[in-house]
Amino acid sequence: MILDIILILLTKIPVFSKKFIKIVSGFLLANSSIFIAWCLFSQRPGSITYFETTIIIIKDIWIWNILITDQTIYYASRIALRSLIMFFLALMFFIGTTDRDLIHGLRSIKVPFTVCLVINLIFRGIAMFQTDFQIIKEAMQTRGVEFKRVSLPQKIRNFVSIFIAIIVLMFKKTEEMANSIESRGIPFRSKNRTIYHYFPLRKKDFAILVAILLFLAFSIYLRIYNYSLVNFILNFLSIILNFIPITLFW
């Protein structure tokens, strides 16, 4: 988690920009709701009970108790922390990598060109889709269609109309793009294709890969023997502490 934040700071993005703060605070809000939900709905008995009450009882079918013990808090924070770490990891990936870095990288580790081209076209397609979507939405507004302040079924109907127009556009555009690709003479199996942006894997990359794999193996090991990280560290420390007198004795 801390490592994560350091890495994000390393990417040199404007951390205090409005957008960034908006995204992070939005997620923290969502994350705290996860925490609260776990507290409210997971009824884990624990050694210390902080709070207990019954909210709804539907005869023999379902009983909603709120039971907050030390165990609930422990599990809820575990879940919340887990998603928090995943969020920051994903955030780091998206901030630090542009879509073209991804494609250059994929090509450099010899992923087939076709696959890279398809991924690239997906990104390109998304960009086109967004602009087209916006224009069509505006075009509908100029014909008196409201998107705010209308009932849900009407809203759905409006969006269906947008998609009809988008599908027509996409048909035309994909055909034109296909022609354009063919006209550059891009065969899907080419032996003597060269790579302009070539980033081969260096020692550093391998080192990081190995470190990640070791860490993965380590966490699997912990999982199998049902250790928690904290227990493990404590055990590890106690072993070392036991050893210290021995070494001193020697």
């Binding site: 073209r100 690239n120 390109r124 793009m177 354009s180």
Partner: peptide, 13 residues
């Protein structure tokens, strides 16, 4: 061959 629509000819990023 160069086409009419510059938008759809632009394939890469």
């Amino acid at each position: 061959l160069i086409f009419q629509d510059p938008e759809t000819q632009f394939i890469m990023m």
